[in-house]
Design a protein around this nucleic acid. Structure first.
Lengths: 246, 246
DNA sequence: AACATTCTAATGTCAGGACAAAGTATTGAC
DNA sequence: GTCAATACTTTGTCCTGACATTAGAATGTT
């Protein structure tokens, strides 16, 4: 079962060794060098082949198992699962997702204000009473076709923003440039019926199906940075994810 | 910053040390002993306090960071994020989820057959032409109220099943007892409008919003075990999850 | 007082070793 | 030939040790 996956490790590179291994195996799987179902060499041999220690090799494989590309079984070995399973949902904005897929998203800023937060927003962002937030509504289109209607509230003590920025790039890239390091987000996905306000904007019929998402994002200092309520046309958007059993 | 979280580690227990630490810290966070925003002692001290090595302590904290309960920052320390963020979506059945929350779900088996798989199912489960599968439709109720309408296809070369089993327990517990070790599932969540068939069964209006989920589950040998198409009443169900930045 | 430099504390990465536990395959007894 | 006991392979857990990197505080210089 010697599956020679000729990876090359660059010890002078600033990217961690285990991460180089992760990238190498990912590439091998996606390119078809490692076929679904094939067995890898055992951890010790693999580590020896790459002149790495076993813990480093294990850390790399841990990540691949977590992301669902590999499957391990004690006493048996490690197998490649199906390469066709999709990547797990990531912490990124819709704008980035679309851009990365070669699409050209555009944004219409329907409203923009810098106002005192209402009670619900204060709770969601855990802000003291009287705090001000940016509040805006955007319509995202791809190829001229409306895809998503997005309402967001962003705390104003991190970076300033204006309408022009929002219409030319994604919210998350603005915030990242403002020094925000996102760490996690909790979100809820559901469904609703397009109402009189949403339907014309999304160029859909009143009563057609929409996917809803509510999200609150937290940065590395534990601050709640942003909360939003988005709706997507159900005929052009859905959430894909991979769940991994621990 | 000595945050005495008096955990006790049982070295004779079969549960791994790092997992005992995970459970202990989780409990401390949920019970409020560790408040959101508070800083933990550094890894080395914590390990010393519990008479553990640093790698073991780190592995425990890694898991907590991954699940979104802790946030680490190099040169600074480790903080508790927010106790109110929910646990990530897990690989379990709706039946288990409801049971664990103290609900009493019931299941009506609307149809059940053991037939040759159609083309779409053969593809989804990656089976050879002519394979037979179990195909059934179930209606799940909680407190007498319909919640979900579920259509599933299960390969028949793992365990046999019948209508009676399905009406008394969840699909996943049947499969687990049949020796299936689930490893991962890929799923897609979207929305649709209730049609003439779905609406009366779910006791909803035709045209009301439904959350849709398509899922294919893979076991530890890489076999596609089950695929299904579920719809949920949007007014009583949504998917909650936590995304963690890697 | 403002700025650059140095120091310190904490997490991040990596090594090498040891033993435990779980499956699988082999061997042996009947 | 069948079944149970044994050996082997592979992953799982845990340890000790070392150095790198980063963020922030303290310090010194201009």
């Amino acid at each position: 079962m010697a599956n020679q996956l000729s990876l090359s490790i660059d010890r002078s590179s600033p990217v961690p060794l285990y991460h180089q291994v992760v990238q190498g195996i990912e590439a091998a799987i996606h390119s078809g060098v490692l076929e679904p179902g094939s067995r890898l060499d055992n951890e010790i041999d693999l580590a020896a082949q790459l002149n790495l220690s076993r813990p480093t090799m294990r850390k790399a494989m841990d990540e691949l198992v977590r992301s669902g590309l590999l499957v391990r079984k004690r006493g048996v070995g490690t197998q490649v699962v199906s390469s066709q399973v999709r990547r797990p949902l990531e912490l990124s904005s819709l704008f980035d997702d679309l851009s990365n897929n070669g699409k050209k998203p555009t944004t219409d800023v329907l409203s923009f204000s810098h106002v005192e937060a209402d009670a619900a927003t204060l709770t969601a962002l855990q802000l003291p009473a009287g705090s001000k937030v940016y509040h805006f509504t955007r319509l995202r289109k791809v190829g001229g076709k409306p895809l998503a209607l997005m309402e967001n509230w962003v705390r104003d003590d991190i970076t300033s923003m204006d309408e022009a920025q929002l219409s030319s790039e994604g919210l998350y890239s603005i915030l990242r440039r403002g020094g925000v390091n996102f760490r996690l987000a909790s979100q809820r996905i559901g469904a609703m019926i397009a109402n009189d306000y949403q339907a014309p904007l999304l160029e859909a019929e009143v009563g057609s199906a929409l996917v809803t998402m509510e999200r609150t994002a937290v940065d590395d200092t534990g601050r709640m940075v942003e909360t939003g309520h988005h709706v997507y046309r159900a005929d052009s958007y859905s959430f894909e994810m991979t769940l991994v059993q621990r």
